[in-house]
Design a protein around this nucleic acid. Structure first.
Length: 267
DNA sequence: AGAATTACCTGAGCGC
DNA sequence: TGCGCTCAGGTAATTC
């Protein structure tokens, strides 16, 4: 499932390949993903140039001169950058054809993704307006997080997965960053001290940046290698020994999400 | 307002 | 072999 690092690596790759390129055709095969895909994409985009590609949380934003193409990969979505016009397979819902022979293909078996179109200011779009600070920006630090946890009873893991608090932290990196910060995922958010918030904010930044770095070899056309499970400290390792103390990792559910932690290393 | 729950969707894995 | 069940989990929408 694409998390922020995968989206960012995808963004960088597409930025290199597509900025300045002109859409010549849009082929729609699915009528809706999470939301209906606007049919006007097929008439608006041809002739337009990709001016820039930006990211907000896990959303990709393509500046298309007269408006924005907004893409979210959901749980199972990915973008493939292809050449020519290879025959579409199952769940290949949408193709963007470019004048230089490139084809950007949206594939998403579970249709949790989003492809939509809007004009105006991205920060005013309903899907983007309520998103909290970018975790890799200066706006996200210990003091901000401390301010956000104040009075909150919800588990700290659920709080950092709340996109209104901080953008783009999903289940994998929530687990990983809490382990790195040595904080139990189930702790009521409001019980965290300022220094713990600082540790956690730094840990979130660290695990995301590390993953983006490791993803430098990730290729959009090879979606399967989006991240590197063997490098995870806790995610997907319930019952296995902690990499630091060898204690078997606990696996619980928080808010319906698989949550893994070390009861010895995390307080 | 904050917290909890539901809805969306398909493939994989499992027990029988 | 196939059926039914559970799980995976991002996030918007809904309810409490």
């Amino acid at each position: 499932m694409p998390e922020l690092p995968e989206v960012e690596v995808t963004r960088r790759r597409l930025e290199r390949e597509l900025v300045g390129k002109r859409f010549t055709q849009v082929v729609l095969r699915a009528s809706k993903l999470r939301f209906p895909i606007p049919v006007e994409l097929t008439t608006i985009l041809p002739g337009r140039i990709v001016r820039s590609i930006e990211r907000r949380g896990k959303y990709l934003l393509f500046d298309c001169e007269c408006g924005w193409l907004l893409v979210h990969l959901g749980m199972t979505g990915f973008l493939q950058l292809l050449r020519g016009k290879p025959l579409p397979g199952k769940h290949d819902h949408l193709d963007f054809v470019f004048g230089d022979g490139h084809l950007l293909r949206f594939h998403d078996p579970r249709k949790f993704g989003i492809v939509t179109w809007f004009t105006g200011e991205p920060r005013q779009h309903p899907l983007l307006a309520g998103i909290g600070p970018e975790p890799l920006s200066g706006a996200f630090d210990g003091e901000y997080l401390f301010d956000s946890v104040r009075g909150r009873k919800v588990a700290i893991k659920q709080l950092i997965m709340n996109s209104a608090v901080v953008a783009g932290v999903g289940n994998i990196y929530a687990n990983e960053s809490l382990f790195r910060a040595r904080i139990r995922p189930g702790r009521p958010a409001g019980t965290l001290a300022l220094n713990e918030c600082s540790e956690l904010a730094a840990a979130i930044r660290y695990v995301l940046e590390k993953s983006i770095g490791e993803g430098s070899t990730y290729r959009v056309a090879e979606e399967a290698v989006a991240y590197y499970p063997q490098s995870f400290m806790v995610y997907g390792r319930g019952g296995e020994p902690c990499r630091l103390c060898q204690n078997p990792l606990d696996e619980i559910r928080l808010g319906g999400r698989s949550t893994v932690f070390c009861r010895r290393c995390q307080e």
